[in-house]
Each structure stands twice: as structure tokens, then as C-alpha cells.
């Protein structure tokens, strides 16, 4: 395994170095927030997830040992788990029958007709596992090996999720184009 670029920084955070804390926040917050926003489709919830992720980072930094996984992989895993908790809670709040298909209505902060909001809705319309894979490889720019490690699956399984996810997105977006 290649050296972890975050190892030294995390060690300093664990030792209580305030400058290292600032550097770590500057380095990781944009990635964590972007991941949560795209997973949840809700900026406010994503900010909560980002804060919770950092609480876990502060709690575990002093005991962090390089070897099991890269720090960035662990951070992504923590963020995704927190996102899944929220997605589960959303489902639990739906007291009646859960719809099989995502609600096609625009999200509260969506501006109909804008391409980025169409993509945002389309991402929310595919299976969460496929969404995770696409976000990690496409938006978080992880290598196939890193993404597979984060999702705790094989590279073949990752490729399958990616291909199915992209196909589903293409179908939703093409349907949207036809509806316009």
C-alpha cells in the first residue's frame, strides 16, 4: 500500500496541534460536504453530516493507525455511513407505503429546467449503492481500487454498480428530455 498522504497531518491532529486541525478542515471539508450533498440531495442535511464526520475525526485522530485503510478512505466510509443513517430515517418517517420509484417532483430548492438540478434529481432517483459508486469515482475522483475499498466490494462489483448506475441515469435524463 502506498504511503498515506494524510498520515502525518492526522498524527499532529491527534497530538492536539491547532494548526493541523485547521489544515485538515481546509483539506477535507470540501470533499466531505460534496460527497454528502450529492448523496443526500439536501445541503442542510449534508452540513450536519459534515459536522458529525469531523466529530468522529477528532475523537479517533489520536488513536489512528495507518495500515488498515487510508485516512481518506476511512473518512469517506464514515461520511457514507452517516448519509445512510439519514436516508434510513427518511424512509422510516414515511409511515404509509414507500414508493418504489423516486418522487419525480422537483426538490424544494430545485429550479426546474436547469441542467444541474436535473442531474441532481436523476442522481437521487437511482439506487443509493449505484449513486455511491458514481459519486466516488466521478465526483470524488477516487481510483477504482480506492472506491472499491471504500465500498468494501471488489473492483468487478464496483464496475457493475457504475455501469448500472450510469445506465439508470441516462434513462432518467433521456425521459426528462422527452418530457420537456
Amino acid at each position: 500500500m502506498a504511503a498515506d498522504p494524510d498520515e502525518e497531518l492526522v498524527r499532529r491532529v491527534g497530538a492536539g496541534d491547532p494548526a493541523a486541525v485547521q489544515t485538515l478542515v481546509a483539506r477535507k471539508l470540501p470533499r466531505i460536504l460534496a460527497l454528502a450533498v450529492r448523496m443526500l440531495g439536501d445541503a442542510a442535511e449534508a452540513e450536519d453530516v459534515a459536522q458529525e464526520t469531523f466529530v468522529r475525526i477528532w475523537r479517533h485522530a489520536s488513536g489512528w493507525r495507518y495500515g488498515n485503510a487510508r485516512f481518506d478512505t476511512w473518512v469517506h466510509r464514515v461520511t457514507l455511513n452517516l448519509c445512510y443513517d439519514r436516508l434510513r430515517r427518511r424512509r422510516e418517517w414515511v409511515t404509509d407505503e414507500v414508493p418504489d420509484v423516486a418522487d419525480p417532483a422537483p426538490l424544494p430548492d430545485a429550479h426546474p429546467g436547469e441542467e444541474d438540478h436535473r442531474v441532481k434529481q436523476a442522481l437521487q432517483g437511482i439506487a443509493p449503492r449505484q449513486r455511491e459508486a458514481i459519486i466516488l469515482v466521478y465526483y470524488q475522483e477516487m481510483s477504482n481500487i480506492e472506491a472499491a475499498a471504500t465500498l468494501q466490494i471488489s473492483v468487478d462489483a464496483l464496475e457493475s454498480l457504475l455501469a448500472r448506475g450510469r445506465r439508470s441515469l441516462q434513462t432518467i435524463l433521456t425521459r426528462d428530455d422527452a418530457d420537456e
Binding site: 486541525v21 478542515v25 445541503a43 459534515a50 441542467e115 444541474d116 442531474v119 441515469l169
Partner: peptide, 19 residues
């Protein structure tokens, strides 16, 4: 199409509360 979906950078308030 995927490229068009950009996410805003974290605000100062979020930065501050995490610090």
C-alpha cells in the same frame, strides 16, 4: 451532463463551527 452538477464550497459559518 454530470459535470454540470456542481456543489457550492463550504461556507465560513460551517468552517467556523467545525473549528
Amino acid at each position: 451532463r454530470l459535470d454540470s452538477y456542481r456543489v457550492d464550497a463550504p461556507g465560513k459559518a460551517l468552517h467556523g463551527s467545525i473549528q
